[in-house]
């Protein structure tokens, strides 16, 4: 898929879009000279593609892909970033009473599977006590990416931005050029959210035939047309919550 940044600039506003994480990323910025805004979008694009190289479940050559193939043999030293992501997912697993579970795609999955994941913070290693354990960060990565984008925006003093990763993960910082905060509507429900330095995460099946989220309690795909949207300060937390609320019903 083409991943170069395309953009349009008008009246101080820059809209850039590109593909990453199997979807389109939309970024709207203003408040700095055009070149500075363009530079920030390029940096964001680079960061998201790096993140994808690290944590793409579907790419066996990503750091996560390699971990999934070898971590049952011995503890594997991983990058700080991957360790941090998996550690966060462990916290959300506990907080959601298992409703958010990144081990859901493991062989012979059951509610205990997650316990085969051993994190050693002191050595930055990850170890699987069972063969067949596989970690899938797909349902988490976009939200985590939003938190990375926020860091980049802060570093470059961009106060106002609307960032959309695949429609399901939206972050708004500062204000719309003509108002306070940003107003975003979920197309399926028609519900409008006023976002003020917050993330809007939506999880669910938008059409009756679509099913792509597995319920940890049953091990089966959740069926039926239904969506859950949550507003959170952190994008990563939003992903965990939206998924957990969707599967919990």
């Amino acid at each position: 898929m083409y991943s170069g940044v395309q953009s349009v600039y008008n009246q101080g506003l820059l809209y850039g879009w590109f593909t990453a994480m199997h979807t389109r990323v939309d970024i709207l910025l203003y408040g700095k000279p055009e070149e500075a805004l363009r530079n920030v979008i390029t940096l964001i694009s680079d960061a998201l593609h790096r993140l994808e190289m690290r944590a793409n479940f579907f790419d066996s050559t990503s750091e996560l892909g390699k971990l999934n193939q070898t971590a049952h043999l011995k503890p594997i030293t991983v990058s700080d970033e991957l360790f941090q992501m998996i550690a966060l997912c462990k916290i959300y697993h506990e907080k959601t009473d298992g409703c958010f579970d990144i081990s859901i795609r493991s062989d012979h999955y059951n509610a205990e599977t997650f316990q085969s994941l051993i994190l050693d913070e002191a050595h930055s290693t990850i170890y699987f006590t069972k063969q067949g354990l596989r970690l899938d960060l797909s349902g988490f990565l976009k939200g985590y990416a939003l938190d990375k984008v926020r860091e980049i925006l802060q570093t470059h003093s961009i106060d106002n931005a609307l960032v959309n990763i695949g429609n399901s993960s939206v972050m708004a910082t500062g204000n719309h050029p003509k108002g306070d905060g940003w107003k975003v509507t979920v197309a399926a429900t028609g519900k409008e959210y006023l976002l003020k330095n917050e993330c809007l995460t939506t999880s669910g099946n938008e059409t009756p035939g679509r099913k792509h989220i597995i319920n940890p309690q049953t091990g089966k795909y959740v069926e039926g047309q239904r969506t859950v949207s949550v507003v959170t300060a952190s994008g990563a937390e939003g992903e965990a919550l939206a998924t957990a609320l969707f599967v919990a019903g």
Binding site: W182, V184, T227
Partner: peptide, 14 residues
């Protein structure tokens, strides 16, 4: 004016 952007939803795939 301060319009809403009606794009949010579940994951979009090209």
């Amino acid at each position: 004016l301060f319009d809403t952007l009606p794009f949010a939803g579940t994951s979009w795939a090209p």
